[in-house]
Design a binder for these strands. Sequence first.
DNA 1: GAATCCATGTAATTGGTTACATGATTCA
DNA 2: TGAATCATGTAACCAATTACATGGATTC
Lengths: 200, 200
Amino acid sequence: MQSDLTPPEEPPKKIRLNPLSYQILGVIARSPSSGYDVMKTLKRFRPVKVSQVYKALSIMEAAQLVVAQEVVQHGKPNKRLHELTDAGSEAIKDWIAGPTTNPVLNDEFVSKAFSLWHAPQVVRLQLVADRLDWLTDEIAHFESMQADLHATAEGRYQDPDQWEFSRDILVKRHLAICREDLLWCQRLQETLTSRFPDQS
Amino acid sequence: MQSDLTPPEEPPKKIRLNPLSYQILGVIARSPSSGYDVMKTLKRFRPVKVSQVYKALSIMEAAQLVVAQEVVQHGKPNKRLHELTDAGSEAIKDWIAGPTTNPVLNDEFVSKAFSLWHAPQVVRLQLVADRLDWLTDEIAHFESMQADLHATAEGRYQDPDQWEFSRDILVKRHLAICREDLLWCQRLQETLTSRFPDQS
DNA sequence: GAATCCATGTAATTGGTTACATGATTCA
DNA sequence: TGAATCATGTAACCAATTACATGGATTC
């Protein structure tokens, strides 16, 4: 009821951030980045649009979790480098310490496999073959990421206090899971072809 | 421009469905189900709200991909059993044969692990311990699903033309991935404790 | 000459979650 | 007595994707 009289300098206290925002905070905690930089980094691990990043950044800037400063460039457009404030650093820590929601799988291939019995043999084999291709690419991509990391960040990827450690363990995890998935696909392919040897 | 004169009985041709809708079609392809039934089935594999299911069903009913008939029950409220029409069956097949989007991981634990270096040791260990608990539950849950399936559906889970086959391969896949993830968590736990033996 | 990269944003739409409403039955 | 299950829905909200807009520099 006294909302008309709110003082203009009310300090922004606690703001609810969406999942992406925390990932962005995680990126700029490593080094100050432009919105475009953040997009490039995140894109390796999950699909993300630049527009989402800019929107999230502007919200967090308003909430004073990040600050930005203009950097003049020649040959390229100027960029606004964002870095964490103390409040931003707090926000990450609180988030990590807080409750964690369960993982959600969002995989159209799996949804299709759920109805695989419903499709003809040719389609089944094509679906699995496409997946195998994707998995092979994905594994190659992450193997080269791992090689890069081990080449450039000497030893730091073994120290839990360095960000290279976080990246290394996640790359390892993703590789392990993709390799399991690949094995599973190969077994499925064999099962399908052994049942209908003529149509392969 | 002649839209005012559209005939009232225009047959609904091709409708764009959301991912959930195809999953629902996959469920009712197995056996006629109420919205509530569908929710219970899907909930084992992904989080889903009944309200979403009813909404999707009513859209697909209007598009004549599914038909429903009221079933009178005693002791319980009546239910509307939905089943596939020929057009619905077509829609699944077209979808499976069409292009498949890449998987998207949506896992808050992984996002937190990305910034793990940023958190204190106690928080790190707690995060990993919680994940291990969840994984253990998840594996137990799917192991019992597998046991049930092998007990009730004799042999049918080995025939790619039966829906039990689809379920069996997906359960196997999920178990394989969860077990890999568990191993990874255990290794991470060891690494973290070996570096800070005092604070465990 | 066309496509891609760098760089920053706004606007509209879709997919999903949360909250709300209703009501009988069963179980602790 | 209070919570959970069965059963069907509507409405509001949040997260993410898609589309649009702009413009210089580089690469094919």
